[in-house]
C-alpha cells in the first residue's frame, strides 16, 4: 500500500468518527444533604423496576444523528438512597426495624427523561431533564403525599468531547434532582410526621 492510499484511508476514518454512536455510562457523586435526620421515622424505598439499572436508548434516532445508549447503572438508586437516608433511617422489607411503629413507604419511579443535543437544538450545549414520581405511603399503604420532582442540567460542549459534555449534563441534572428532592422533603417533613403520628 503506497503512502497516498494510506492517507486517504486515514482521512476517511477521521470523517467517519462524526457518524458513530454514543455509549455513556453514568456514575455520579451526590453529597449528603445538610438536613436534620428524623430518628423516629423509618423509610422503606421501593424502586420501579425500570429505574434500577436503567439503560436508555431512543426509540427513533433522527436523521444524521448518532445513536445513543445511556447506561445509568445504579446512579439513580444511589441518588434517592443518599437523599432519603439523610432524613430517615432506611429499612429493608424483611428487617426487624421495618416492624417498628413509625414507618413510611416511598415509591419512586422515573416519569420522564428528556434531552437535547447541540444538533437538535442548534446551539452548543447538551440539556437534560428528569422527572420523577415519588409517592409517600403509610404502613397501611395509604397515600400520604404524591410529588413530582424534576431536575435539569446543561453543559456547553466547549473544550469537552461530545460524550463528556453529555455525561456532565446528566450528572448535573441528577444532582439538581437531589437538591430539589431534599428541599421538597425538608418542606414537607412536618406534614409527613403529623400524618403518621
Amino acid at each position: 500500500m503506497n503512502n497516498a492510499v494510506k492517507k486517504i484511508i486515514a482521512l476517511q476514518a477521521l470523517l467517519l468518527v462524526g457518524c458513530g454512536s454514543q455509549n455513556l455510562i453514568i456514575d455520579t457523586y451526590i453529597p449528603s444533604p445538610l438536613v436534620n435526620k428524623n430518628e423516629n421515622i423509618s423509610a422503606r424505598l421501593v424502586f420501579d423496576e425500570k429505574l434500577q439499572n436503567f439503560i436508555f436508548s431512543p426509540e427513533k434516532v433522527q436523521r444524521n444523528e448518532a445513536s445513543i445508549e445511556i447506561n445509568f447503572g445504579s446512579s439513580q438508586v444511589k441518588l434517592f438512597q443518599n437523599v432519603f437516608s439523610s432524613f430517615f433511617s432506611l429499612v429493608d422489607f424483611e428487617s426487624e426495624d421495618s416492624k417498628s411503629a413509625k414507618i413510611i413507604r416511598i415509591d419512586i419511579s422515573l416519569d420522564k427523561f428528556e434531552y437535547l443535543t447541540p444538533q437538535m437544538a442548534a446551539n452548543q450545549k447538551y440539556s437534560v431533564w428528569f422527572k420523577y414520581n415519588i409517592q409517600i405511603l403509610d404502613d397501611k399503604d395509604q397515600s400520604i403525599d404524591n410529588w413530582f420532582i424534576t431536575g435539569y442540567g446543561e453543559q456547553e460542549t466547549g473544550t469537552f468531547q461530545a460524550d463528556e459534555a453529555f455525561t456532565r449534563a446528566i450528572q448535573i441534572a441528577l444532582r439538581d434532582t437531589g437538591a430539589n428532592l431534599s428541599i421538597k422533603t425538608q418542606d414537607e417533613i412536618k406534614d409527613i410526621v403529623n400524618s403518621i403520628s
Binding site: 444533604p33 445538610l34 437538591a179 430539589n180 431534599s182 428541599i183
Partner: peptide, 9 residues
C-alpha cells in the same frame, strides 16, 4: 452545603 447553594436553590 448541599443542597442549599446549587444552581436552582
Amino acid at each position: 452545603f448541599y443542597p442549599w447553594f446549587e444552581p436552582s436553590t
